[in-house]
C-alpha cells in the first residue's frame, strides 16, 4: 500500500508543510512519517522540533507512539508521563500508556535507533486494523528498504520544516492557520475504516476507536487550541462520550466526562427547540458568560465544544472551529 502512494501527493504534503510558516506543524509532519512507518525520521523530527518547542504536546505524543512502535517502551512511557503531567485528561496519551502497560503491549524487540537508519517496519499498523494487516508489508514479507515510493520528497519537507522551526524558535506565536486536511495528503490517511458494528451496537467509549483516527482527531483539536485565548476543545459523540480532547497548556484541565455529557445535553435540547420553532437544524450555540465563551458546534452526529476566554474574538474562534469541523467530517467520511 505504501508504495502505491502517488509521489505527487507526498510532495504536495511536503510543500504544504513547507509553505506554512507555523513551525508547530513539525508534529503533524512527524505524525505523517509515523503513520507511514518511518519511525526513525519521525523521531528525529520530533526530537529536533521539541528542542525549540518543548511544550508541543502533539509532537511529544507522536514521539511516544514512535518509541512504542519501535519497542522502546520505557522511552515511550517517559514521554507519556510528561504529557500526562501537563494534560492529565489527554485521553490518547492515557490510551497509549494503557497499551504499554498491557502484557505484550509492545511486542517488538528493542530496535536500535540510529539517526541514519530507516525503518520500513510497521508493527503498530499491523496491530491496528485488519486492513493494515493485509496491506502493509511485514518485515518478513518485504526486504529492508525505503517504504515510500520516493522518501526523498519527505526528507525535503522535513529538512525545510526543521529549518523553519529553528528560524521561528524565537518568534512570537503565530495565529492559528490550520493546514489543509491531512487526509488530502494521499490515500495513506485512512482514518475511519467503515466498521459495521458502529451502527449496529450502542456507541462505544472513544478509546475503542481506531487509534489512527483518534490521533487525527487529537491533532485537529490540538490545532484549535492554538487559536489565541482558546482554552480547550472537546469532541463528544451523540451520547455524550468524549471522543477526543485538547487543553491549552496554561489552562486548567477539562473534566471530559461531565463537560461532554453537558455539552451533548444542551446541544440536543437546543436543537429540538429550534426545530419546534421551525428555524431548521441547529448548527452552533455560543454561550457567553462572565468568565468564558463556550462554543458548541454540530459535527455530523457529534458535538464539538470549544471554550475560550471571555475576551476571545468570537469570529476568529468560529472560523477556526469551522475549519476543524470540515476536517473532522473529512475524517469521518
Amino acid at each position: 500500500m505504501l508504495s502505491d502512494i502517488p509521489s505527487d501527493s507526498v510532495k504536495d504534503f511536503s510543500d504544504q508543510v513547507v509553505d506554512d510558516p507555523s513551525s508547530l506543524l513539525f508534529g503533524s509532519l512527524a505524525d505523517f512519517y509515523r503513520e507511514n512507518g518511518l519511525y526513525q525520521e519521525a523521531i528525529n523530527i520530533c526530537l529536533t522540533g521539541l528542542e525549540s518547542h518543548p511544550n508541543n504536546i502533539e509532537a511529544r505524543l507522536v514521539l511516544a507512539q514512535c518509541y512504542k512502535g519501535t519497542g522502546h517502551t520505557e522511552r515511550a512511557r517517559a514521554e507519556l508521563t510528561k504529557i500526562l503531567s501537563v494534560q492529565p485528561q489527554n485521553s490518547l496519551a492515557k490510551k497509549v500508556l494503557a497499551e504499554l502497560d498491557k502484557p505484550g503491549g509492545s511486542e517488538l524487540q528493542e530496535i536500535a535507533i540510529s539517526p541514519a537508519e530507516e525503518s520500513p517496519i510497521h508493527p503498530e499498523k499491523a496491530e491496528e486494523t485488519p486492513l493494515a494487516e493485509e496491506a502493509i508489508p511485514t518485515p518478513t514479507a518485504v526486504p529492508a528498504g525505503p517504504a515510500m515510493a520516493d522518501p526523498s520528497d519527505f526528507h525535503k519537507g522535513a529538512q525545510a520544516m526543521m529549518a523553519l522551526a529553528a528560524e521561528s524558535a524565537e518568534k512570537p506565536k503565530i495565529e492559528f492557520v490550520p493546514p489543509e486536511p491531512a487526509s488530502q495528503a494521499g490515500p495513506m490517511e485512512v482514518p475511519a475504516e467503515p466498521a459495521p458494528e458502529k451502527t449496529a451496537i450502542p456507541p462505544k467509549p472513544p478509546t475503542e476507536a481506531d487509534p489512527k483516527t483518534m490521533s487525527s482527531y487529537g491533532r485537529i483539536l490540538n490545532e484549535i487550541i492554538q487559536t489565541p485565548q482558546v482554552r480547550a476543545s472537546l469532541l463528544v459523540d451523540e451520547s455524550g462520550y468524549p471522543v477526543a480532547s485538547a487543553t491549552a497548556p496554561q489552562s486548567a484541565g477539562l473534566d471530559e466526562e461531565s463537560s461532554g455529557a453537558l455539552s451533548s445535553l444542551v446541544f440536543t435540547s437546543a436543537s429540538e427547540a429550534m426545530q419546534k420553532v421551525k428555524l431548521g437544524e441547529l448548527e452552533r450555540v455560543v454561550i457567553d458568560t462572565r468568565n468564558e465563551k463556550i462554543f458548541l458546534s454540530r459535527v455530523g452526529s457529534q458535538v464539538l465544544m470549544v471554550t475560550a476566554e471571555s475576551s476571545a474574538k468570537t469570529g476568529l474562534v468560529a472560523v477556526n472551529v469551522k475549519r476543524a469541523i470540515d476536517r473532522i467530517k473529512n475524517l469521518s467520511s
Binding site: V266, E281, E283, V285
Partner: peptide, 24 residues
C-alpha cells in the same frame, strides 16, 4: 439548562446565548 450545565448555580454569570440554525 445552561445555568445547570455551568454547575455554578449563578445565573448572573451568563451574559447571553446565540443559537444559530439553518433557517434562522
Amino acid at each position: 439548562q445552561v445555568v445547570k450545565s455551568l454547575a455554578r448555580g449563578q445565573e448572573e454569570q451568563i451574559y447571553g446565548v446565540q443559537l444559530l440554525a439553518s433557517e434562522g
